[in-house]
Design a protein around this nucleic acid. Structure first.
Length: 190
DNA sequence: TCCGGGATCCTT
DNA sequence: AGGATCCCGGAC
């Protein structure tokens, strides 16, 4: 079941926690690539580390749309980061997807050594976009529509969630806005 | 630890 | 227009 738009139109910290255990799928030419979300970070509108905290710009304008769409940006000259916009239109909040447990189209059903290699492809925000072939073409996609190339699906999972501070930022370092699934081997390194 | 890479945004 | 910065990853 694809998560409905209402799922995203809620408190960003709630959405960041509840995205853990859900499945993200990128359909490319009829082929599905994807996995289970195991690590997220919340970026709130009044949070100094959030792109939207200093107002709307050409880059961050997807964050000000209603929740449920993607926000993809290019960083460090070579990586993309995939975010899910949350809350009502005009707010400027999102959840960064930081790591996946690969389940579709990433050699996960091959030999064991290939599966363990596949795990190294999605244990970081820049790596997972590369593995799923996500770039700015996938910016502003409605993740709740079945015809979209990227969709996020419900799972019957109730993950054990760990909360920590976020990674790789210099502002608002102390905020406990990072969430990951306890003991999951696909979480990014700290 | 260190640094590449290029877009982005703030400062002039 | 210039430069500091950036939600990273891989090589040391």
């Amino acid at each position: 079941m694809i998560l409905p738009q209402d799922f995203y139109l809620r408190n960003t910290l709630t959405v960041a926690r509840e995205l853990l255990g859900k499945t993200i799928i990128h359909r490319i030419k009829g082929q599905d690539i994807g996995g289970i979300i195991v690590e997220t970070e919340a970026y709130l509108d009044d949070d100094d580390a959030c792109h939207a905290s200093r107002g709307m710009t050409p880059r961050n304008h997807p964050m000000f749309e209603a929740g449920g769409i993607s926000y993809v940006y290019f960083i460090y000259g070579m990586y993309h980061c995939f975010n899910v916009v949350t809350e009502a239109a005009g707010k400027g909040c999102a959840v960064l997807i930081r790591a996946l447990e690969p389940t579709l189209g990433l050699d996960t059903h091959a030999q064991h050594h290939l599966a363990s290699r596949a795990k190294l492809l999605t244990n970081g925000p820049g790596k997972l976009t590369r593995a799923l072939q996500i770039n700015k073409t996938q910016n502003k996609i409605a993740l709740y529509q079945s015809e979209s190339s990227i969709t996020i699906h419900h799972n019957d999972r109730t993950p054990d969630i760990i909360t920590t501070t976020r990674i790789g930022i210099n502002k608002a370092k102390d905020l406990p806005y990072r969430f990951y699934i306890h003991n999951n081997p696909h979480v990014s390194k700290t």
